[in-house]
């Protein structure tokens, strides 16, 4: 076993629940739940296109939150082996 000082610290891992949120958001970005029907325009685009973009905007905002909240700054000053 390595001496205590040489042991690597616990790995940086993000909480598991965030993956459930990502799954839901990506699922919402695919318009499987939109019934077929006549063309409906939102902002000049088919409404299911706007729904998809909105879901991806949710993914982007959630990612910014996760990175800021759950990704530790860690060992910024760690030595760099040559």
């Amino acid at each position: 076993m390595l001496p205590r000082a040489d042991r690597p610290p616990a790995s940086v891992r993000l909480p598991r629940w965030i993956w459930a949120v990502y799954l839901a958001l990506f699922a919402a970005s695919v318009p499987w739940y939109v019934p077929d029907g006549p063309l409906r325009l939102w902002l000049g685009l088919p409404h299911w296109v706007v729904l998809s973009i909105a879901a991806i905007a949710g993914v982007a905002l959630f990612t910014v939150f996760v990175v800021r909240r759950y990704w530790p700054d860690g060992d910024d000053e760690a030595p760099i082996p040559r």
């Binding site: 690597p8 940086v12 860690g74 060992d75 760690a78």
Partner: peptide
């Protein structure tokens, strides 16, 4: 996150 830590 972990790969960066290990790479350094």
């Amino acid at each position: 996150p972990e790969l960066h830590r290990q790479s350094r």
